[in-house]
Design a protein around this nucleic acid. Structure first.
Length: 514
DNA sequence: AATTAGGTCAACCGCTGATCG
DNA sequence: CCGATCAGCGGTTGACCTAAT
């Protein structure tokens, strides 16, 4: 670990140290060759030494800086200092409006590829851009504003479609996914923080997964193009590794990032958590109204805390994802965003799913944001897949075979195939899971206070074995929160939005993810 | 005036890919 | 082919500053 300066002054730093005009600040680390390297803020003297070194030797060979100049900094630190502060032609000061605009556009295209973005902004460093973006994210999220102006959303949507047209595995496409992943669109992490906050209800669930549930969800969403459940920014090896982990988790491990599933190995407990009992107990809704939002509007999310207080649109406003504020003053670009925010978009699709074979001639996404684009992609993808499925003739129902919804949350088939596993890790063909489900009374569903009966029928979820339940519960929990959000949004036509989300979620869990 | 919260920024850390011996 | 080393990237942290209370 690092030592304090005082420790170094006690003779623990190298002899050269005393000859260097280093400041008194900073800590020191002993590196492998016994030389104690300084950490912390750079002094002007150190800067001068580094500048001098680069003048003489040029950039690179950062690890030799210490040898040649006596500068007690590690190579990494030198490189960073040079790149971010000392190299010539660096722009200082606040970003100009043009730069800000460019950053937004670039981020919409690239996602968190700060270095690549920096290449488009002469004189700016990746660190600067990253810091700017992160603070901007915080600011806008706090204000409930959209991160992207509508035109950028549209561009991203179109770019996404173009990528789709070319089988979309390119950097731009990845960037698109980064965007999706990073911002989670309508379902901010705070919702899941709130879920954590509610753990007190759940004595046997000491901890929700470390992973952001929304990010998992969005990873699934992203997969609509990538065909991967993993983060699009993830390197191949990492993805493979994590896929393996995931697979093994499904196989019964459910360790590490999926603690929650461990907790739910006991189906009864899981059901209790979600206000359900085994077998299904409608009373459970009353027992845990908080969890299911049964008392509509009783779930005000205020200041990141789940509250049973009367909902106020203001409070929700602070928490809701930007794209859900279609009818609120979004300020600036947000004002012109579509009136079809996330939930609405999903609703529309859920409520009126394409009957018969899903065709690819869905209306293109318009200004309704990137999620609409995703939905559009999902439909298009599903059309491409063109799996024949016995869709319900009921237009209000998405049946398990409805790949349009599934495609939105498409798990990596190829990755499973890489493992030679065309059967789900649970040992079931993906679609068979749903076929196992037998309808239950709609009134028996506590998952929505007034679910369209035809929508939640067929969800004999809780007779399935625990590993399957785990996923269901997990995502139902996610989407319950999404639903609460929707409920709290003034002028939002719910139209069973929560329910619709459930369906997508369930498809994600079984039909595609597995 | 003291405290607190939020914002900004610099720097560090861990990881990955490329390169080299 | 393999391990070591290096450069670079993205995420995170902590110090500092400022405004609000």
């Amino acid at each position: 670990m690092s030592r304090t300066t005082s420790e170094c002054e006690d003779g623990m730093i190298s002899k050269d140290q005393t000859e260097l005009p280093l400041g008194e600040e900073g800590s020191y680390d002993e590196c492998t060759n016994g030389v104690v390297l300084k950490k912390g803020p750079w002094t002007s003297a150190e800067d001068a030494i580094l500048i001098e070194y680069v003048k003489k030797h040029g950039e690179g060979n950062w690890n030799s800086v210490q040898k040649h100049s006596g500068l007690l900094r590690c190579g990494k630190s030198c490189r960073l200092r040079w790149a971010n502060h000392l190299r010539p032609n660096l722009k200082k000061g606040a970003f100009t409006q043009e730069e800000e605009q460019l950053i937004i556009e670039l981020h919409a295209k690239m996602g968190n590829k700060w270095a690549r973005m920096a290449a488009h902004l002469p004189g700016r460093t990746d660190n600067e851009i990253k810091n700017y973006w992160n603070t901007r994210i915080k600011r806008r999220q706090r204000a409930g504003l959209p991160l992207y102006p509508p035109e950028v959303c549209l561009q991203a949507s179109q770019g996404s479609q173009q990528c789709l047209d070319i089988n979309g595995i390119d950097s731009g496409n990845k960037g698109q996914h980064d965007v999706l992943q990073t911002h989670n669109y309508g379902i901010p992490d705070v919702m899941f923080d709130n879920l954590k906050t509610n753990q007190s209800i759940l004595p046997y669930v000491p901890e929700l997964p470390d992973i952001s549930a929304s990010s998992v969800l969005m990873k699934g969403l992203c997969s609509s193009q990538h065909g991967s459940f993993m983060s699009p920014t993830m390197h191949r090896q990492k993805r493979l590794r994590e896929t393996t982990t995931l697979q093994s988790s499904f196989s019964g491990g459910m360790k590490n990032d999926f603690h929650v599933f461990d907790q739910f190995q006991d189906g009864d407990k899981a059901a209790q958590y979600f206000g359900l009992s085994f077998p299904f107990d409608p009373d459970s809704v009353a027992k845990n109204p908080e969890i299911f939002g049964e008392n509509q509007g009783s779930h005000t999310l205020a200041n990141g805390n789940f509250s049973a207080s009367k909902p106020t649109s203001e409070a929700v406003k602070l928490e809701l994802p930007s794209l859900q504020y279609a009818e609120t003053d979004l300020g600036g670009w947000g004002a012109s965003c579509s009136s079809s925010p996330l939930i609405e978009s999903v609703d529309t699709f859920i409520q009126s799913p394409p009957t018969g074979t899903v065709e690819s001639n869905f209306p293109s996404p318009r200004n309704s944001g990137l999620l609409d684009a995703l939905l559009y992609e999902a439909r298009t993808l599903s059309s491409a897949k063109n799996r024949s499925s016995d869709k319900s003739s009921n237009s209000s129902t998405i049946t398990p075979g409805d790949d349009a919804a599934c495609s939105v949350l498409n798990f990596s088939e190829t990755e499973w195939e890489d493992y030679g596993d065309t059967i789900s890790p649970l040992g079931h063909p993906a679609t068979s899971l749903f076929r196992e489900c037998t309808p239950i009374s709609a009134s028996g569903s506590s998952l929505d206070e007034s679910p369209p009966t035809e929508t939640l029928t067929g969800m004999h979820l809780f007779d399935m074995n625990p590993p399957k339940n785990n996923f269901i519960f997990y995502y139902l929990s996610i989407l319950n929160f999404a639903k609460h959000k929707t409920q709290a949004i003034p002028n939002t036509h719910r139209r069973g939005s929560g329910t619709g989300l459930y369906v997508i979620c369930l498809h994600f869990s079984f039909s595609d993810l597995i």
